[in-house]
């Protein structure tokens, strides 16, 4: 780990990752051992490792898997679902499963075709559905907090993208914890300070069987491009990604970013259909999309 100037053997690395996770959970006041945590599980290395770590640390963490209906010639969703189920069974953990097609009549690629969001790629629709359904289920199922497996590379890539266009609203919202408010469940990212490389190493060293295939729609995505650019930077300047993210968090916490009007939170209203918070005056984006897909079906 060049960014930490640290080299550990396998056993010490497997101890170090959970210890650091515990440190970040406390530092950012993510949750306590008395709270119920819902972990968003994709079947990938990060979410399964997060679930593993929280269990080892003694937290009450159940999983949530969303069946997205993505095939891409490799049966991607079925494969990832199998990995999630296998991990839950092997560790005696509870996994909630929601199949998007069964719930809303269409898979993510089908919803994407109807909604025209994302210019032919379903990633925008996928993100919208995940955010909406994870929030809804975390609240409906009575969880205190929703945890995702975002790692530092994910966070640095988002930060990089938002910085390139100076999206003040998104920049002010990004962080390890999004507090619960107005119908939004608390959202936390306990792995946000680990490099993607470290999380892969953890999954491999721990023997976690995860879906190695990339989502077929992720190829050529903006987030992967930003990660590659940041990795080039990291190659020449070890620690650059970590510094980029941590200095941003410090600046944000210190109130050094976007002083003035942007400090006012966006005004939210309950969606007239599902009741979840939205900036729209009537229905939220998710309900508008579902309504559009229902109309298209008639």
């Amino acid at each position: 780990m060049r960014q930490h100037k640290l080299a550990l053997c396998k056993n010490h690395f497997l101890e170090w990752v959970p210890q650091q996770t515990e440190r970040f959970i406390r530092k950012y006041k993510m949750f306590t051992r008395e709270e119920k945590i819902l972990v968003a599980i994709s079947g990938g290395k990060d979410s399964l490792s997060l679930w593993d770590i929280l269990g080892r640390l003694g937290y009450q963490a159940d999983g949530l898997y969303l069946g997205l209906g993505i095939d891409g010639g490799i049966d991607y969703s079925s494969g990832s679902h199998r990995m999630a189920e296998k991990f839950a069974r092997a560790n005696g953990l509870q996994l909630h499963v929601l199949d998007v097609r069964r719930e809303y009549g269409r898979s993510i690629p089908e919803l994407s075709e109807i909604s025209y969001r994302g210019h032919g790629k379903p990633c925008a629709v996928c993100g919208l559905v995940k955010r909406h359904e994870m929030n809804r289920l975390a609240r409906d199922l009575g969880y205190d907090v929703l945890a995702t497996g975002h790692n530092l590379d994910d966070e640095a890539a988002v930060l990089f993208g938002n910085t390139l266009v100076w999206n003040a609203e998104y920049l002010l919202r990004q962080g390890p914890v999004l507090a619960e408010r107005d119908g939004f469940a608390r959202k936390v990212k306990p792995l946000c300070r680990f490099y993607e490389r470290e999380m892969t190493a953890y999954a491999l060293a721990r023997g976690i069987d995860y879906i190695y295939d990339e989502c077929p729609f992720a190829e050529g995505s903006q987030s992967i491009y930003y990660k590659e650019v940041l990795n080039q930077l990291e190659s020449g300047r070890p620690g650059a990604k970590l510094t980029f993210y941590l200095r941003f968090l410090e600046a944000r916490a210190g109130g050094e970013l976007f002083k003035g009007e942007n400090e006012q939170p966006t005004h939210l209203h309950p969606c007239t259909k599902c009741g979840q918070p939205t900036t729209a005056l009537d229905q939220c984006s998710f309900c508008r999309m579902i309504e559009k897909s229902t109309v298209a079906e008639l």
Binding site: A124, C215, F217, S223, I224
Partner: peptide, 9 residues
């Protein structure tokens, strides 16, 4: 082993 994953996360 490739470590990068992307898309809608």
């Amino acid at each position: 082993i490739a470590v990068i994953s992307g898309g809608a996360r």
